[in-house]
Amino acid sequence: APGQAQAGKVKLKIAQTVFPAPSAHMDSVKRIADKVTKATDGRITFKVYGPELADWAELNEMVMRGDIDIMLSPLSPSYDPRWNALYAPYIVTTYKEAKDAFGPDGFMNPMLKEWADDTNMIWLGAWLQGFTGVSLSERPAATVEEAKGIKIRTTPIAAYECCWSKLGFTPSLIPYSEVPTAISTGVVDGQAGGGPFQTYSCCRDLNKYFMFYRDSVEVWAYAMNKDAWNKLDAKDRELIAKVVAEEAQARIAGAEKEDMEYMKKLTDYGLTVVDLADHPKKLAMAKQRGRSCWKKLDEIVGKVWMDKIRKSVNMPIE
């Protein structure tokens, strides 16, 4: 928790625990810390943490409790099932649509703010991680027919499992740390749920194909512990909100650039990369199948919320 002892001095802890430096993520949290410290002439100082601290799910818990003040992190649905809505397949398929949904004025924002508030956090902005796909070793697969019989590791989240089986694959559940072993020994053929950057980092030597299904846009949060937020005075709150909003805005372009850059890197490394956006019919088919999984989310997230999203993306409401 921030100590506000001498002359309004504030010490804050900020963390990002998925990608270590050098990474866009660590750069972003460091920039936030630097900008705020500079703007307050050193009155507000930060301790910046990377992956050495904890895994992202635990980081969520630490921010809720106030052990860490600000995080840039994926959201854990362990405390509020509504975060599962972020896992809904195919809410959007292009970067422009992603901006309209999750950007500072996006239609998702009011919901995200409300949910964060209910879990003792202040929503400061969304970080677009980029779109995800599947990496494979045996053969490429962009349609249901091609995917038949291919076993892939998926994140153990109902919506993802549903989506990948609708897309024709056989989802398999394996702990994340055992994925590389499982791929190299053939327990599974590949892994779903990673974008170009994650695939390049984890599996470029293990897989031969990267199918950019764009099944979901990965959304992370910039969020702050509510008690720490309330202890700040109004001017400091405004400053932090402004600095983070700038970061979130800049990342929208950053996500697209990073996806494209790492797809090229994967190609250069010798993988066959297929972007479903280049095959509109296949993408449309995948989108239709993927969205059929939203029904599952109605019970978990709440139909009211899912209907709001449906309305915003012009889907019929039953």
């Binding site: 019989g149 076993k151 998926t154 153990p156 109902a158 499992e161 056989t170 989802p171 398999s172 559940l173 394996i174 702990p175 327990v187």
Partner: peptide
């Protein structure tokens, strides 16, 4: 996984 080619959620 190996025989019936299905995943049962949550076993792990």
């Amino acid at each position: 996984r190996y025989v019936f080619q299905v995943a049962i959620s949550g076993l792990d």
